[in-house]
Simulated assay, not measured.
Amino acid sequence: MDIVLVTGFLGAGKTTRIVRWLERAQTGDTALIVNEVGQIGLDSILIGQADNAVQMQLLANGCLCCSSGNSPGPVIAQLADAHLRRTGRTLQRVVIEASGLARTSQLLRELAAFYPGFSNALRVVCVIDARTDLDLQAQPEAIDQLACADFILRSRGDLASAVEQQRCTAAISRINPFAVLVDDDDLAAAIEAPHVPILRFDAPQLTARASGHDVVVAIVAPRRTNAGYLIEWMENLAGACGAQLLRIKGLVELEGAPGLVCAQSVGGLISPLQPLAREVRDQAPFLVVIARQLEPQVLSSCDPEQHFSLRKAV
């Protein structure tokens, strides 16, 4: 089962784009979870107007990421069971529209607690208004949403000036250099992509710090190591940083393994190591760590054998 988490800060345009996608998509084996803060679910009403409305569950008793008893895991199980009884088919996809105040990293931890191994079938899509001035927007939830995204959809691009679009794109690349940018109304490109892109093969050339929200991007040069030590380092880093750690992603060389391996963690959740499907020539191993208020000595303290040396922190 694929799980698609659609995030985006308040007013970014998530609901509008989900409605447009529903009106065009083939959603026979898809279910939708809508999370709203408040007892009146306006978003669910709007989504219910779509011609191709799917089986939908509204959660309106607080943010999925922080409300006790409001985990999406049991809801997914209920939707899957109801779909099987009604159609005789297995549910293939669940789309979760998170509250604009939800922290993606915490929501992913909630999902992992219920659905071990879910990261292999998960993609995170973040919607952001192209007119947003990210350097002035000090909302930690918005930065968390961006840093955890696989795909970023810049909404309302037709209303943004060229300067606003360039500023938004530059800020996105500083916070999350791995995200795939998709066109304004093409949510299907993210939801229905045949696979989640592992990463672009050019190591990010980051020269500026995303000001205003204490996000630090550290580029680490790893030397050849073994899988156990790599996982231990990522676990130690997650333990040292706690909720401040947003993302780790990059390519490493493992002892006894040919080629490069993709290593990644989102919100402290470590995905299984993935060998690259094709050979990448002339690519040096690298890891990028994205965290709030990250001190360089934290990286070294988690690495007693010094396999991961800091190259740059911006």
Rank of each mutant, 00 (worst) to 15 (best):
F151V: 07
C302L: 07
A113P: 00
R123V: 12
V125F: 11
P222T: 12
P177W: 00
G268M: 12
I33Q: 12
G69N: 05
C148D: 14
Q92G: 05
L122D: 11
D185V: 08
L136P: 00
G28H: 14
L199H: 00
I290N: 11
S67N: 00
T132G: 00
I175N: 03
Q274I: 13
E235D: 04
L251T: 08
A98D: 05
I219S: 13
H195G: 13
Q283S: 14
K312T: 08
R156D: 00
P72G: 05
D133E: 07
L254R: 04
S67A: 14
N70E: 11
Q293D: 05
A147Y: 06
L146M: 11
T30P: 09
H83F: 02
R154T: 13
L294V: 07
F9G: 08
V182I: 15
F308Y: 14
V216R: 15
L181I: 14
S300C: 02
A102N: 10
C302V: 09
V280N: 07
M234L: 10
E255D: 07
L254D: 07
D2C: 01
A227D: 13
F118N: 05
A210Q: 09
E36D: 15
V19C: 03
V314H: 08
G41R: 08
L22G: 09
G268A: 06
N176S: 03
A190T: 15
C148E: 15
Q39W: 03
R89H: 15
G8N: 08
P285L: 06
L134K: 01
R86D: 02
Q165T: 10
D135H: 12
G41Q: 04
L287T: 14
E232D: 06
V215R: 11
Q57M: 06
N61T: 03
A31V: 14
Q264L: 01
G117A: 04
D214K: 10
S99K: 09
Q92D: 12
S211R: 10
C66R: 05
D135Q: 12
I248K: 07
R223Q: 05
A102I: 06
N70C: 06
N61A: 07
L159W: 10
T104Y: 02
I3L: 15
Q39H: 12
V215Q: 14
Q264H: 15
R20D: 01
T90Y: 06
I40F: 11
I76H: 13
V6Y: 08
A82C: 08
I191Q: 15
Q166S: 11
C241P: 01
R278Q: 08
L273D: 04
S309W: 01
D202Y: 00
S309F: 00
G242F: 13
A263N: 08
E235H: 03
M1V: 12
L287C: 09
D133S: 03
V252T: 07
N61R: 07
E141G: 04
